[in-house]
Structure formats: structure tokens, C-alpha cells
Simulated assay, not measured.
Amino acid sequence: MAERAHQTGFFTRWNQARRADGLALRHALPDRLLPLLVAAMAVLAALALAGATGAQILSARWSSGAASMLTVQVPDPDTPAAAKAPATPLTRSDAVLAALADTPGAARVHRLDKAELDALLAPWLGRNNDFALTLPAIIELHMATAPTEEAGALARRLAAIAPGTLVERNAEWGERLGRLADSLHSCALLAVAIVAGIAVVLIMATTRAGLAARRMPIELIHAMGATDGYIAGRFARRTALLAFIGGLAGSVLALPLLVLLSHVAAPFATAAPPPPSAAIAAADWTMRAHMLLDTLPPPLIATLLALAPAAALIGWLTTQATVRAWLRTLP
């Protein structure tokens, strides 16, 4: 009985301390409107930061991927190679494949098969077409690093084996795609800055409304010797708490949207995922949720975790500045 009475007394004192507020900030700064607005700002910030993160990842992938890949076209691929080819009889495409495999820094040499060529030409010629002309062999040369041999020198070396062979570097397209992704990244960061500015204005307006609502008590305790730091701290702590709650709610609300967007954008940033197996399809919801969360890049996860503390920090700093500036206007 004594222990239960002690616990009851503890919770009673805790509730009284929680409700104790000499400035009545629970009425001056309502605990419903501000967290709701901050949560909306947090969702917008999360989406904008997701766009910035995605643009940065795409820029790095496009730039590195295009810079390290060469496309080789070999006309008449099934005819015998030139006399300067190796003594073993080889077709032109096989001779070029062997030469490319010996290229310093080559990581992978792949010749597109008929199905891949059909898929490549389908937007222009349709599917399942029997071509009257022999299509050139298309070979992709993936380098471990940026090619050290110039495309012209490589083309001349391959032309000695299979005359008419063309070599195309994709670095120019990679640079264009990189500039596009960088511009998207800048626009996303600008959107984040705009959202943060709107949040600052919103918190400032809410704080000034709270100051106006409690003007008489604030003037009274200020005249009695309460420092600017004490009054600003009381307002800032409550605003930071409400902003933290709003930022946390916004992060939770934004999580499903970010998982969906990351799942849709995954083929553009990484290799296409394998089709789900029957075991995965039959897995419970926790495993499926874990697999979906794995699609989020680590910078985006860190962004979600930082939203609530960032909102609290913005709320605290903005309220401190607003209250101190308002107090300096008092007589």
C-alpha cells in the first residue's frame, strides 16, 4: 500500500509539474496547430531532399557509367576478318571481341544478341522483324576506369582487324546527363531552402501571436526582473518541443512515399532487381517491409532521422531571436 501511494504521489507531482506554466504557454502556443504545420513542412522537405539525393546518385552513376563505356559497331560481323587478324580463322566480330578483351583496363566485353538488338530497335522498327540487310554487331566495352586509349586510336587499331569498325564514346552524353542531374540537385536544394524559410516565417508568426496573447504577464515578470534569456528560453523550449513532434510526424508520414519513390527509381540507379521468388512473395509483412526499406539509400535514411532534430533546432533558434527582438521593444 505504501509503495502504491508513493507511486501515485509521484505521478501526481509529475502531472502538476507538467501543467505548471507561469506564462500559460499551453494557451499562447497551442499544441495542435504548430506541430501539424511543421509536419507538413517536414513532408515537403523530405520529398525535396529525396529529389536532391536521387539526383546526386543518378549524376554519379550516369557520369561514371558513360565515361567508362565504349560502344563498338562492326559491319558485316560474320565475314572473315582482315589479313592482319590472328592466324586462326575468325569472323570480324570475333576478332574485334578478342582485340577488345586484350585492351588494357577492360572489365567486360559484351556483344548484344538478337533479342537485345530487337529491343533496342523496337521503338523505330517494331518487334519481331526480319531484316533484309545484315545488322552490324554491337559490342559494349566496359572499362574498370576511364579509358586511357583515345577513341580514335582504338578505332584505328580495330579497323586494321575489321575495316569499317566504328567506336563511339558516351562521355559526351554522360556529361550532359551529369549537368542535368546537377541542375535537378540544385533545384531540390533550393526547394529545401524555401521550405526552411517558410518554416521560419511560420514559427516566427506563431511566436509573435503567443507573445501578443501573453503580453501583460510577460511585461509584468519582465518589470519584476525576469531576464530576456529566461523568457525567451521558456518560449523556445516549448516551440522546439512542438516542432520536434511535428518533424517526427512528418518523417513518419514521408517514409512510405520515399520508399515508393526509391522503389520506382531503383532501376535507374542500380541494376534491375531480380524477379521476386515464391519464397519472397510468401514472406510475412515484416520481411517485405525490411526489403522495401533496403531500397532507401543511406543518405536518405540519415535525412529522415535528422528531420525532427532539425525542425526543433530551427524552432528554438527562431523563437529565441523573435522573443529577444520583441522584448527589446518593451519600455
Rank of each mutant, 00 (worst) to 15 (best):
S183D: 06
R176F: 12
P163Y: 10
L189S: 07
G174F: 12
P163G: 04
L158C: 09
L180R: 02
A159H: 01
A132H: 10
E175F: 12
T165K: 07
L189H: 09
E150G: 05
E172H: 11
L180V: 07
N170S: 12
V167C: 09
S186L: 09
W173T: 07
C187Y: 14
H142Q: 14
P136E: 05
A188W: 14
P163Q: 04
S186G: 06
A188R: 13
L190R: 11
L189Q: 13
E150L: 06
A155S: 08
H185F: 06
T145A: 14
E168T: 15
L141C: 11
L154D: 02
L141M: 10
L189A: 05
M143N: 09
E175H: 15
G152L: 13
I139S: 11
L158Y: 12
G164I: 09
E140G: 09
L180T: 06
P147I: 02
C187E: 04
G152D: 15
E175K: 15
H142S: 07
I139H: 14
V167H: 14
P136G: 04
E175R: 15
A153K: 02
P136A: 02
T165D: 01
I138V: 15
A144Y: 11
M143D: 08
P147E: 00
T134R: 03
A146M: 03
E149P: 03
L189D: 11
R169N: 06
P147N: 02
A146H: 01
C187T: 13
M143I: 09
M143P: 05
L180G: 08
A171Y: 08
E172A: 15
T148I: 01
A137S: 11
P147W: 01
L190K: 05
